[in-house]
Design a protein around this nucleic acid. Sequence first.
RNA 1: GGCCCUAUCGUCUAACGGUCAGGACAGCGGCUUUUCAAGCCGUCAAUCGGGGUUCGAUUCCCCGUAGGGCCGCCA
Length: 503
Amino acid sequence: MIKSRSESSRIRTRFAPSPTGLLHMGNARTALFNYLFAKNQGGDFVLRIEDTDKERSKPEYEQDVLDNLRWLGLEWTEGVEKEGFYGPYRQSERTELYQKYLTKLLDEKKAYECFCSEEELDAQRQYQMSIGEAPRYSGKCSSLSKEETAKKKKAGEKSVIRFVVIPKEVTFEDLIRGSVTFNTALSGDIVIAKDLETPLYNFSVVIDDSEMHITHIIRGEDHISNTPKQILLQEAMGFERPIYAHLPLVLGEDRTKLSKRHGDISVTRFRDAGYLPEALVNFLALLGWNPGTEEEIFSLSALCKQFSFEKTQKAGAVFNFKRLDWINGFYLRQKSPSTLAELCTPFLEQAGLVEKVSEDIVVKETGEKLSKAIVEKIVVLYQDRLKKLSEIGELADFFFKKRVEYTAEMLSWKETPKEETKNALNMFEEIISGISESDWTKEKLENVLMPEAEKQKSRGVVLWPLRVALTGKEASAGPFEIAEILGKKRTLEYLKEAKEKLS
RNA sequence: GGCCCUAUCGUCUAACGGUCAGGACAGCGGCUUUUCAAGCCGUCAAUCGGGGUUCGAUUCCCCGUAGGGCCGCCA
């Protein structure tokens, strides 16, 4: 399961989320950078679920992390082996290990049991802050004798386990920030476990990073002040110190740490809105890293080849939705018709326009079965206009509806009088009627209709009402290609309907 | 309040002592065009302030200032 130290001189990174919410963009970026660095170095990328908080950890959140990591293409390369593949490591399954070290620290008097109440500690913190001191634990229970401790426990007094923080200067080298120094005297003895079965973050993380032979700890900048505490813990247990890299934070528009209050920023939400994994990866990579060239488009494998911490930013980066849209649109435009059709289908279903009946795509309103070719033609029409897949429904709904809704006013191009619009429609109807079903192509339609349109003051006089008649919209793809897909019968029906609206 | 981190166009960023401070997104304008896009072209827009060091600072140092992060029996 876990490789021994001798065979693991290679680079190992880890992503260690707590399953207390949906995987969000900030965490996804941390996972990505861990993955990129590991791959770049030919190393391993370990996934560890930090579910020591029994109340807040939920299996569905863990599932969300796993699903989205896979969806993004960030497959972890190691974990608990299960039926041929790797599940993630879970801290909840490693309690014995933590207990072993906890007992050891207690025995060596590097940790002690503390009976102070939360209220008591709260009041102390408040007071210290009010007089401008760093809030820290007084060390009150550190001097308790063995007998006193035993007595209190016997009396049923609640206790936690504190680690004796040695006051000193701790300096570590950060791959992104260089040398960082903290004075641990400013922090009191920290709580490392609620009890022998319930370790807390700062403690379990140190054990696991050592046990799993993690060589590089790549995490958000919000962990920078946890680092000296973890280093002290490493020293107390005789562990090797890993190399640190603290990533700049992903920020919201207001330049504060990206969180729920900036809206739903879960990966799942972006996935549901029709963003492509390659777009998200590309976008996230450029949030804090740059290639040093003017290239903007990177596949995951290209990122793996080029990634380095030298090109990593120190300052936080605002999550820019418009830029994400642009990148997503770019990737959408690269898709083949059949891939695009496959990608769009779930979104057409979601919009209530079609249904999948076994392998067939069926129009919900009419029950008509759609050929693969037709679906492809439809989505290709909107390929250039799509920023995200979820937009396809609204853009192309008229293909799947019996009747499109619009007002008579919409039919007229600019200031064109009603009569003129009606005449134009009449003229088109007449010409179109003469085209045979077998000739019904956008080229044919354009060839016969365009010359007539040219005779008008402006082509818009006829082309505009044609579009509105067919789509019910003021903005759409070209009317000839739409008419081709709609077919002769429906096209004529829609024209007739438009004329009725005008009279 | 204490500690730590950070600072180039609105946003993401390039320039590792010498550039007209470059690119991209967004914005704006144009071309194309029946519309909306896409595409192409153009345009607006930045080195937080003050001291040093240096022939020369966006770049190195110091001091301010501003922003952020952390100060949990969460992670």
